[in-house]
Simulated assay, not measured.
Amino acid sequence: MQTIAERLKLAHERIDQATARSHRPSNSVQLLAVSKTKPVSDIRQAYEAGQRLFGENYIQEGVEKIQAMAELDDIQWHMVGPIQSNKTRLVAEHFDWVQSVDRLKIARRLNEQRPSHLAPLNVCIQLNLDGEASKSGISAEELSALVEQIEGFENLRLRGIMAIPQAGVTDAQQNDTLEQLAELFGQYHTKLSNFDTLSVGMSGDLEAAVAHGSTMVRVGTAIFGARRG
């Protein structure tokens, strides 16, 4: 059985190969290790292997892990799951990034509840271009208004967009969605100074995402193995 360190190495090799095929610099895509449902011991193994960016889907679980590893101040913690309004304070107080902002109410509460002694909270707007009812995210038509609103919040720093493209579709359908995401990202990347993150691509589709300009891939299973729950 492969170790977490070995799986991390393979994930980085996949990213390097994908960026090379797309004639992009090898350091142009960051790896976010999605550690939901995995124990702190697994995260520590990944940390010891050099991983510093970790993503959590469940707020309470994520906060417990952040607190358990508080002595490691170089970890960057990302919330990548849906956020209920009654949990925004926990997110604002503990995480460095939120990739799943999909409505003004959540953005406003995060801005109001971000502690003054912390740097602005980095946020991405979650898009759902395929209109899947089972997933969070806004449509392309709603993006402009939410961008403008978040840009006005002093305790948030809008960094980009995040998406989970529909699974089980044809290559043509997948490419169409990824092309739309790349186009939307490009529009704001050129206009906004901090808008530098296109978070798309996971264990099964990171190569296609990198080919379409992803700057951050979110990998869980390929690093930590199958999840519970």
Rank of each mutant, 00 (worst) to 15 (best):
Q99T: 02
H117Q: 13
Q149D: 07
A140E: 13
I75R: 06
L90Y: 09
N122R: 11
E148N: 12
W77A: 01
E93L: 08
P115H: 09
C124K: 05
E64Q: 14
H94A: 07
L129Q: 03
L121N: 10
E151F: 06
A68K: 13
A70R: 15
S144E: 13
L90W: 12
A68I: 03
N111K: 09
H78S: 04
Q126C: 01
S100P: 12
C124W: 02
C124R: 02
L121W: 09
G152D: 01
I59P: 09
S85K: 14
E141L: 09
L104H: 15
I75E: 00
G152S: 14
I59N: 06
L127E: 04
V63R: 12
C124A: 08
R114L: 14
I125T: 08
I75A: 03
S85Y: 03
D73A: 09
G62I: 05
K87G: 10
W77S: 12
A70Q: 15
M79H: 13
L121Q: 01
C124P: 03
L127V: 10
C124N: 07
L129C: 04
H94L: 06
I150M: 15
L110R: 15
Q67K: 15
Q67C: 09
N111M: 04
C124I: 04
S144V: 02
L121I: 11
I59W: 10
S144K: 00
A107T: 05
Q67P: 14
V91Q: 00
Q99S: 03
H117G: 08
K65V: 11
G152M: 02
L104Y: 14
I138L: 08
G81F: 07
A119H: 01
I125C: 02
E93S: 11
S116Y: 05
E93D: 12
P115N: 09
L129H: 05
L118I: 03
R103T: 12
D74G: 10
L118W: 02
E71T: 10
W97F: 08
Q126E: 14
V147F: 04
E142M: 01
D102C: 02
E112F: 03
V123R: 05
S139G: 07
N122V: 01
A119W: 00
V80P: 00
E64T: 09
G81T: 06
P82E: 04
Q126S: 03
I125R: 06
Q60A: 12
T88H: 03
L146Y: 07
A107H: 13
S116T: 15
K135T: 07
I106Q: 00
Q60L: 14
S139N: 05
L121C: 04
P115R: 11
E142R: 05
